[in-house]
């Protein structure tokens, strides 16, 4: 009996993990706001990045403002390898990262250990 309970519970747990972490959950891209020739978008850092996907216009200087609320050590650094940026994000502060997106494409940004990730879509 114990064994059947264990198997059934485990199967449910595995199913849940697969659905929760690997299921297709479409993210809406947040389009950066344009003002005075600079596009700005704020990203909340709390258990990951929200919005996960941000959309920028090519050829316009961009400001990504990372607002870190999560004390987890995993999120204390953000990397944008395609833009040559790695920046420490002090807890409870907004950190502005300026990049110059030139070429259209999808660029990944991640935490220091690359377990959390987000995407910069340049159009």
């Amino acid at each position: 009996m114990d064994k059947i309970v264990s198997l059934v519970t485990s199967a449910l747990a595995i199913g849940f993990i697969v659905w929760w972490f690997f299921g297709k959950h479409q993210d809406e891209a947040q389009v950066a706001e344009m003002a005075e020739g600079v596009q700005t978008v704020e990203i909340l850092v709390d258990g990951g990045y929200q919005p996960r996907v941000v959309q920028l216009a090519a050829g316009v200087p961009a400001r990504l403002i990372f607002n870190r609320k999560d004390p987890s050590g995993c999120l204390e650094e953000v990397l944008l390898p395609d833009f040559g940026v790695s920046r420490a994000l002090p807890l409870g502060e907004k950190t502005m990262i300026e990049i110059g997106p030139q070429t259209a494409g999808e660029y990944k940004y991640t935490c220091g250990m690359q377990m959390f990730s987000g995407q910069v879509v340049v159009k």
Partner: peptide
């Protein structure tokens, strides 16, 4: 504390980490 908080907020966003 930091591990549990980190794990929970990651979980909420369908992410998993070292925490």
């Amino acid at each position: 504390y930091p591990f549990f908080v980190g794990a929970w907020s990651a979980f909420k966003h369908r992410q998993a980490s070292m925490d």
